[in-house]
Amino acid sequence: MVVQPIKKRLSCCDFTRLKNPKAGKGQAYIPTDYEHIANIVTHGFKTLKYIFHIGDRAVIYLFIASSYTPWLTLREFNGIGDEVLSIVWTMAVVGILYQYIFHEKYKILELLLYLIIGVCPAIVVCLQRQAAGMFELALGGATYILGVVFFKMDGRMPFAHAIWHCFVAGGALWHYYAICTHLLGHDQDELAMHL
């Protein structure tokens, strides 16, 4: 049996065509075509991470606006429900645009947007004549607002951002429960009584 030299056996795994030549002093790095493709792919994933981070913040506005929408559309507010609903969704759009245009630039504005969209509709909803569901709605709003404390603790407390996510999900769950038991369930019971 003839043994080939090690150099010959490794030639099938020659990676020199995949590597760029070493940049000379004062010269720019010039990637090979393969490296260029790899750079595009990895930079794409960095870009995706940034987009997902912004989307993560933007979706919170949708959570909050969506959790107030059933109350503002299914209950009577002496004719101001539609106006408040327009304000809530306008604020949600402003919050989302803020995230995509000024992400992380004006921290106090971001905080104010979260608080305004979370608190203002709650004040109007609490003025309705029917009290059913108000406790759960208030708990959801309080949960959203308490979560802001952890949102502002990013970088100062371990897992602060993850805890904030839990508060946002908790607030949405309280509002979902209130909607199912006091808005949707109530209407179904009334409908069954009339049949």
Rank of each mutant, 00 (worst) to 15 (best):
E110C: 09
S86P: 00
R156Q: 10
Y144A: 02
Q27W: 10
L139Q: 08
W174E: 01
W164Q: 02
D187K: 15
I80W: 11
P158I: 01
I6M: 07
N20T: 12
C180L: 11
L111C: 11
V88G: 04
L113H: 08
C166K: 11
Y114I: 05
Y98P: 01
L173E: 04
L18I: 07
Y144S: 04
H182R: 10
W164M: 07
G95L: 03
E104A: 08
F63A: 03
I87P: 00
L48N: 03
Y61D: 00
M1S: 06
G170K: 10
T69A: 06
V59H: 05
L139I: 03
I96Y: 03
T69R: 04
A28N: 09
D82I: 11
S86F: 09
V84A: 08
I51H: 05
R17M: 06
L137G: 12
V2E: 14
A142H: 02
Q27I: 08
V119C: 13
K7W: 14
I40A: 03
P70I: 04
Y98R: 05
W71S: 05
I163G: 02
W89Y: 04
P31S: 02
R9Y: 07
D14E: 12
F159D: 07
V119E: 06
I64D: 12
I123T: 10
N78R: 11
I123R: 05
L137F: 14
C120N: 13
E110L: 03
Y177W: 14
M1W: 09
I101E: 00
H175R: 02
D33F: 11
L184W: 12
Y29D: 10
N20L: 00
G140L: 09
I179C: 09
A178P: 05
G133I: 04
M193Q: 15
P70H: 09
V168Q: 14
A92W: 03
E35A: 04
E76Y: 14
C13K: 10
Y106Q: 01
E83Q: 13
A162Q: 13
I179Y: 15
F52M: 03
V93E: 03
M134S: 12
V148F: 12
Y100L: 06
V93W: 06
T47D: 03
W174V: 01
G147R: 00
E110H: 13
M157W: 13
W174K: 01
E136I: 07
Q99K: 02
L18G: 04
W71G: 01
S67P: 02
M193C: 08
V3E: 12
Q99L: 00
I117Q: 06
I116Q: 11
W71L: 01
I87D: 10
L139V: 13
A169G: 11
A162S: 11
P31V: 05
H182N: 13
F15H: 10
G44A: 10
L109P: 01
F159W: 15
G118C: 14
A131P: 02
K25F: 13
L146C: 14
I123N: 10
G171V: 01
G170E: 07
